[in-house]
Simulated assay, not measured.
Amino acid sequence: MTNYTYYPAINWNEIEDVIDKSTWEKLTEQFWLDTRIPLSNDLDDWRTLSDKEKQMVGYVFGGLTLLDTVQSESGMDQLRKDVRTPHEEAVLNNIQFMESVHAKSYSSIFSTLNTKAEIEEIFHWTNTNEFLQRKAEIINEIYKNGTPLQKKVASVYLETFLFYSGFYTPLYYLGNNKLPNVAEIIKLIIRDESVHGTYIGYKFQLGFNELPEEEQESLKEWMYNLLFELYENEERYTEELYDEIGWTEEVKTFLRYNANKALMNLGQDPLFPDTADDVNPIVMNGISTGTSNHDFFSQVGNGYLLGTVEAMQEEDYLIGME
């Protein structure tokens, strides 16, 4: 009698794509939880902010919570349907869990800095803001109805571009010696997203390079049209968040810079002229996600728990494609 395999076991001793293994190792080395970051130490800084700044910070993190919710609940579930290897599915499982950790981390920030009434107002704004809901809708529709490669494009745009209108705020405050523990969480999230976007972009490139030239050109046109649509909406969202604070144009520069990074992850040419030199240097300094020097007894930061795993560097956007 012949025995047939109903469900094959994953074998990490037989690796089909070494990038799966190296990404798994990088992500597990970077593992963290928000509960180990002493957010209450930022309360003195929080009290120095104006009411407009406090409202802006709340809305920023509400928006980030929504996008991480989309990515954890819809995005990774859709990407798992089209994996090339069983090890890729394991990596996506890791990514999905960390996206949930990210979403939960923002609630830890809210519970530390905001009252119950303020938190309810933040989530009402998040769930009703026209431009925030629009970008979530665009991405989620692609997750539901797009091709496997289109879904990967949407995921990379979310991870490497759309999050950054929100990331700008804590990085700016960090550069001005405010809210360092809130920024610590954001730096940990950026470190994760850097790997997520690069890995999924690499998987996109494998599939893209297998397409006939005519299909490649059609997909490239779709990609750039989608980026224009998302950027136009993101401009409106940025204006709504930052006009009263006066940061709008600086944030838009940061967005364009990161839109180019998303295209690089996908193996495509940059669209915008903006480079790192055009971004506010205070923010660029903050985006470097090296270890923080937290005191062993009073604070636990990524320096103590997680070693010195760095964010993806410029050359890492060419991962596996030499």
Rank of each mutant, 00 (worst) to 15 (best):
P8A: 10
I10L: 08
N13F: 01
E14L: 02
I15P: 00
V18C: 01
D20N: 07
S22Y: 03
E25F: 02
E25A: 12
Q30S: 14
W32R: 08
L33E: 12
R36P: 01
L39Q: 09
N41W: 06
D42I: 00
T48A: 13
L49I: 14
L49A: 08
K54T: 12
K54W: 06
K54M: 11
Q55I: 15
Q55S: 12
V57S: 15
G58Y: 03
Y59C: 13
Y59R: 15
V60E: 10
G75H: 02
M76L: 10
L79H: 05
V83G: 01
V83A: 02
I95K: 05
E99Q: 01
S100L: 03
S100E: 11
S100G: 05
V101R: 00
V101A: 06
A103C: 00
A103K: 07
A103I: 00
S105E: 03
S107R: 08
S108N: 13
T112L: 04
L113H: 02
N114P: 04
K116Q: 13
K116F: 06
K116H: 09
E118R: 04
W125N: 12
T128I: 12
N129Y: 09
N129H: 14
N129P: 14
F131Y: 15
K135R: 13
I138A: 02
E141F: 07
V156E: 08
V156D: 10
Y157M: 06
N177V: 10
P180R: 11
P180V: 04
V182K: 05
I189P: 03
I189W: 00
H196N: 00
Y199I: 03
Y199L: 03
Y202M: 13
Q205C: 13
F208T: 07
N209L: 05
E214S: 12
E217H: 03
E217L: 15
S218Y: 06
Y224M: 04
Y237W: 05
E239R: 15
D243R: 14
G246Q: 14
E249R: 01
N258D: 04
L263G: 08
M264Q: 13
N265I: 02
L266F: 10
Q268I: 09
P270H: 00
D277L: 07
D278R: 00
N280Y: 01
M284R: 03
G286Y: 03
I287N: 06
T291L: 01
T291M: 07
T291I: 01
N293D: 06
D295A: 09
F296L: 10
V300E: 00
G301A: 06
G303L: 01
L305G: 15
E310F: 06
E314H: 07
E322D: 10
